[in-house]
Write a protein that binds this DNA or RNA. Structure first.
Lengths: 210, 210
DNA sequence: GTCTATAAAAAGATAGAC
DNA sequence: GTCTATCTTTTTATAGAC
């Protein structure tokens, strides 16, 4: 993977490469993206890329994994910010879901890359794919559960299986929007996003609200 | 698109080409799939492909649209079979959802192609993409609504906006499974699929059941 | 309309100098 | 470790014979 290759050169070059790769892979997709183009975008020679990464696939998967961690951390911060202390259940959940959805628009290259991963899923080594899923979507997904459990403990939600509740929350809000926008590839008018998310939270509370 | 080209030769050849294209595009993705490979798979010369289709993109989009119509019709038949006459709301909805989900496994090449379309969404001409969405996912999605409306009229469901209810049904069943399996690229154990779908219908009925 | 042969461009990866 | 130059393969698309 992104493991420190035998000869890891200037870390600064490496970061230039991964940044460029994220952009080019995001814009062009895996196959169409040329290593030439990535090298040009990074301001680095092609040979330097091959000194840092075994091959094109290694570069792609490294960048994908890096982005997954980044987005997961961003979502963890959103969870903490909106759901650590609850003022109003509906308002706080809605605010969280809206920012969670907006995060997709804030990492356009990453989510373009996510679409590429989904398309290439059957051709990615299963172990690597699993690692990516665990680092990214699965964790971002499941980290909501403990917050819901806490809210149930505090009598703010009906006490049910928190992981299942988290699934339903995600489906009714984030997944719904991502499904329609193709992870941001076909943007939706903001007011429509707001409406979808608001309705999703309302529906969630019909299931789990007090 | 698939419009009858100036010189449309043997219709039989054309069908051989589209069938081969569906398989090769499905297995390799758009960019990696070679026109050579499609010609070989179809048992046809490459030139013949270019006589029937303007270029590779035209071929791909034609096949995608054709597949979308096909799957939409399949789902329409499932709707009619399971939901035209209701015996038991929960049983009938579950049976429908299970077959609806299974349909993804029955058209593996098509849904591999769907993943490719999602990945390429930002690079597909918007008008063409919209046409595909309307022919495929959107229609398959919305055709459920009238059945739910009918069930509400018959007092089997609470009378609410049927399109929204259809959204929620799809999210809680089909989308949930497709999200996890990447449209069938990473299959799930059948019993787990059954559990997810059953739970989804149960949750749907907590929202809309009597 | 269909075929074989080919043109023309682009891709991934490496050799070898510094 | 990084660069320039190059090798080799594969790609899309077309010319020209039948």
């Amino acid at each position: 993977m992104s493991a420190p290759h035998p000869a890891a050169g200037r870390p600064e070059k490496r970061r230039a490469i991964t940044g460029a790769a994220r952009r080019v892979f995001g814009n062009e997709g895996y196959v169409r993206a040329g290593v030439d183009a990535i090298a040009a975008e990074a301001g680095v020679s092609k040979r330097t890329i091959y000194n840092h990464f075994r091959d094109k696939e290694d570069l792609f998967l490294s960048v994908a994994l890096e982005g997954a961690h980044e987005v997961t951390e961003t979502i963890a911060r959103l969870l903490d910010r909106h759901l650590r202390k609850i003022v109003d259940v509906a308002d706080d959940l809605t605010a969280f879901a809206l920012e969670r959805v907006a995060a997709v628009a804030e990492f356009p290259e990453h989510f373009a890359l996510v679409r590429t991963i989904e398309a290439e899923a059957a051709r990615i080594p299963p172990a690597v794919l699993e690692e990516w899923i665990k680092a990214g979507p699965q964790t971002a997904h499941l980290r909501l559960a403990p917050y819901l459990a806490r809210m149930a403990d505090d009598g703010l939600l009906t006490p049910e299986d928190p992981e299942r509740a988290a699934d339903h929350f995600n489906l009714l809000t984030v997944v719904n929007v991502n499904q329609r926008t193709f992870y941001g590839a076909i943007p939706l008018p903001p007011e429509q996003v707001t409406e979808l998310v608001t309705d999703g939270v309302r529906t969630f509370l019909r299931l789990y609200g007090r």
